[in-house]
Structure formats: structure tokens, C-alpha cells
């Protein structure tokens, strides 16, 4: 069964990407959309524009953001040996959100389309430096969690402060909507901004598989098996920050993906941390693509936010997982 998981997930992601390309307010035919996407302008400029400038970046970002969150969640859970770990745990998403919120509040976000995501990335970068500095060079899983929580809480408090002091209710509303997470109205500029950082982060996390497997036996055993724990921690924190920072920068806060996806897929891959990484990346992409299709279908004219939907679906699902765990322990 575990051999079939990756191909099945890959097919699912491709199908959902195709679905994402075909769903939208402009009612375009199937053949029409695809030929406009590929040929570019053959059937009139408007269709090509919608496909290439609106739907393609949205589908690509859905897959990228989802994969980033799923992969980050799987790596963090493996590194911390805790199924409750999620990508926000080390403070990156809260700090990225703070950077974006400051950019929105001060109005610099209006200067250029890249200022907002840039500020979010800056926030993410600062948080990583802080977390690593607080946790110390040899810090284990526990110090990392605690410093992540501290940085997260501080960033959330500063975000609240910015909202609190916001003189303009429209700016406050804009900030609140931004933090709910969305893939609407993104362009290829966002794709090109996120892509190199996400590739870097994914590359770093891809190198953690063996170390995470060894960590199944605990830190002492893993180190005695030849795992360089400092390097593993550096790869984990750096990779997660690059992925979550860039995902938050282009899509805002999209919760529960990084927590729930590894949880669902773990039993299907035999629970091995290294096997969970590619599966969670694909599973995360599938979940975000599906949620982003759903927000367009459920309320086409209300701009339902992606992060709201993932939380509404994710939280009850998570309760269900806890329920099952309770039943097994009883």
C-alpha cells in the first residue's frame, strides 16, 4: 500500500491543479481554457489573460504553498518527535504576518506589489535568527519549541498592537483580511518571488530524511548512529523558515495544513519520517488546492478566505483524530 501512496497523491495533485485552472467567475469552456493556457492568445486576448495571469498563478501558488506547509509540518513533527508540531510552532508564520501587517499599516505595501511579501520574508528571517539565538547552539527539541512559542507570542502581540493603534478602520480591516490567508488576485510575480526560496527550503528539508529516521530512537541514539544533530537542526529551522516564510508572504496565514496532512498520511507510509516527507508535500498541495477550489465554489462572489476554510475543516478533523487516539489509549 505504501508504494502506491506517492503516485496516487501525485495524480490527485495534478487533477486538482487542472480543476483549479478550470474554476473561476469567467465561465470558460474546457477546450477553450486549455488552448488559451498553452497556445497563448489563440482564442482572443481576454481568455489567455485570465488563464495565464489569473488562474495559472493561483493554481501554481496553491500547489506550492500547500507543499511548503505539508513538508514543513512533516519535518517539524519528525524533528521534535511530536505529532502536534506544526509549521507555525517555531514562530515563522506569526513573524511573517507581523512583517506584512507593518507593511500594510504604514502604507508602504501600496508602493509595489513585492513590498508586502518582502516585509513578510523579512519578518520570517528575523524570527529565525531570534529563535536560534534564544535556543542556543546545542539546544535540543524542547528549547527550540519554547523559544518558538516565545517569538510567536511576541510577534502576535506586536501584530495586535499594530491593529490596536491603527487609526484607520479600513487599514485594520485590510490587515485582518490579509491574515486570514488567500490565493485570490495573486500574479506570476508572487510565483517567481516564492519559487526560489521554496526550492531552497525544500532542498534543505529533503536532506533531513535520514536524520529524522534516526531520531525515532531519541537524540542520544541518533547522535551515536552518526547523525549530526546541529546540522539537522540548522537544516530543519532554515528550511522550515524559508518555506513557511515564503508561503505566508504570498498567501497569508493558512493554518492546519501542516498539522493535519502529516497526521493523515503517517499511517499510509508506515510512519517512517523520511517516507512521510514527499507524501506530506503532495498531500499539502492537494489539500490547499482543494480548499482553494472550494472557496471559489462555495461563495463565488464573497471572497471566502482560504485560511478560514482550512481552519473550519481542519479543526473538527483534528478533534476526530484526538477522539480516535483517546479510543486507542483507553
Amino acid at each position: 500500500m505504501s508504494r502506491a501512496v506517492l503516485p496516487l497523491l501525485a495524480v490527485l495533485v495534478l487533477a486538482l491543479m487542472a480543476g483549479s485552472l478550470l474554476v473561476g467567475p469567467a465561465r470558460l469552456g474546457l477546450g477553450e481554457s486549455l488552448s488559451a493556457l498553452l497556445a497563448g492568445g489563440a482564442e482572443g486576448d481576454a481568455v489567455a489573460l485570465v488563464m495565464q495571469e489569473v488562474r495559472l498563478p493561483r493554481a501554481l501558488l496553491g500547489a506550492m504553498v500547500g507543499a511548503a506547509l505539508g513538508l514543513s509540518g512533516a519535518v517539524l513533527q519528525g524533528f521534535l518527535r511530536n505529532p502536534l508540531a506544526e509549521p507555525g510552532l517555531i514562530g515563522t508564520s506569526a513573524s511573517a504576518a507581523l512583517g506584512a501587517v507593518i507593511a500594510l499599516q504604514t502604507g508602504v505595501a501600496a508602493l509595489h506589489v513585492l513590498v508586502l511579501p518582502g516585509a513578510a520574508l523579512l519578518g520570517a528571517g528575523v524570527s529565525v535568527a531570534l529563535v536560534v539565538a534564544i535556543a542556543g547552539p546545542r539546544g535540543g527539541a524542547m528549547t527550540l519549541i519554547l523559544s518558538g512559542i516565545a517569538v510567536s507570542a511576541f510577534a502576535a502581540a506586536l501584530t495586535a498592537l499594530v491593529l490596536n493603534l491603527s487609526p484607520n478602520p479600513f487599514a485594520a480591516a485590510e490587515i485582518v483580511f490579509w491574515t486570514m490567508g488567500s490565493l485570490a488576485d495573486r500574479s506570476m510575480v508572487h510565483v517567481w518571488l516564492a519559487l526560489p526560496l521554496m526550492a531552497l527550503g525544500a532542498g534543505m528539508l529533503a536532506a533531513t530524511g535520514r536524520g529524522l529516521d534516526a531520531l525515532t530512537l531519541g537524540e542520544d541514539a541518533a547522535e551515536a548512529l552518526g547523525t549530526d544533530l546541529r546540522r539537522l537542526r540548522m537544516l530543519t529551522v532554515g528550511g522550515v523558515a524559508a518555506l513557511v516564510g515564503s508561503a505566508t508572504a504570498v498567501a497569508g496565514a493558512v493554518g492546519f495544513v501542516g498539522l493535519v496532512v502529516p497526521h493523515i498520511l503517517r499511517p499510509l507510509v508506515g510512519a517512517r519520517p523520511s517516507a512521510l516527507l514527499p507524501a506530506s508535500a503532495l498531500g499539502g498541495a492537494a489539500m490547499v488546492l482543494a480548499a482553494d477550489i472550494a472557496v471559489r465554489l462555495i461563495a463565488p462572489d464573497r471572497d471566502l478566505k482560504l485560511g478560514v476554510l482550512t481552519a473550519i475543516v481542519g479543526a473538527p478533523f483534528f478533534l476526530h483524530l484526538i477522539w480516535r487516539l483517546r479510543a486507542r489509549l483507553a
Binding site: L215, T216, L217, G218, D220, A221, A271
Partner: peptide, 15 residues
């Protein structure tokens, strides 16, 4: 050298 730590930690339900 192989090391068997005292704490019998198995974090995940691997085979």
C-alpha cells in the same frame, strides 16, 4: 561503537 541508551524511546509506530 553502537550505543543502546537507557530510555527506550520509539517515537513513531514504524515496523
Amino acid at each position: 561503537a553502537a550505543f543502546l541508551p537507557q530510555g527506550r524511546e520509539v517515537a513513531w509506530p514504524v515496523a
